[in-house]
């Protein structure tokens, strides 16, 4: 099997790709596609704002769980810390996306390339996070099975 040098290359789904590998001639984005990117701009901007609010509310919840006796658990604080870190990473990528799509909305056609790049960066991050999440679930599942088997044999 051929090895790739790029660790951030998306997982292969060759069997699902059909014959979509080779693009012939020049590919161009239609006006309709541009309008779709423009129409998405306010939603992406609102998403970044609301994600910021969500992070802030999460932090307030974490503080409240520390201050209010009996409501906090170390595991909950850890999950809030991890969630905040992940949300911040996503927020940074989404802000880049929102800025590029707003430039496109303002009329700068060159920003279409920036939107595509920001889209790629955003999905790569989400994909890597999903891969880590799936990996963790699998590892924890295997550990749970091994522990269950070990417990049953004793």
């Amino acid at each position: 099997m051929a090895m790739t040098s790029n660790p951030f290359e998306p997982p292969r789904t060759t069997d699902l790709d059909g014959d979509g590998g080779a693009a012939t001639g020049t590919l161009a984005m239609s006006e309709e596609a541009l309008q779709e990117l423009i129409a998405a701009a306010p939603w992406v901007r609102w998403l970044t704002r609301l994600l910021s609010v969500s992070i802030a509310v999460g932090l307030v919840k974490a503080v409240a769980s520390v201050v209010i006796p009996g409501s906090g658990k170390p595991a909950k604080l850890f999950s809030v810390a991890v969630g905040t870190a992940i949300s911040t990473l996503i927020l940074v990528r989404l802000r880049r996306y929102a800025t590029a799509s707003e430039r496109l909305r303002a009329g700068t056609r060159e920003a279409a390339g920036e939107v595509i790049a920001a889209q790629g960066s955003c999905f790569r991050l989400l994909g890597v996070l999903a891969a880590i999440g799936v990996g963790l679930v699998v590892v924890l599942g295997v550990i749970a099975l091994v522990l269950a088997a070990f417990g049953a044999s004793r």
Binding site: P10, R12, A28, M29, G113, A117, Q119, G120
Partner: peptide, 17 residues
């Protein structure tokens, strides 16, 4: 808007992700 080679590659990767 004509797409450049790197932009096409980014779109292809994004589709995979």
């Amino acid at each position: 808007v004509e797409l450049s080679g790197p932009q096409i590659q980014v779109l292809r990767d994004t589709s995979g992700w």
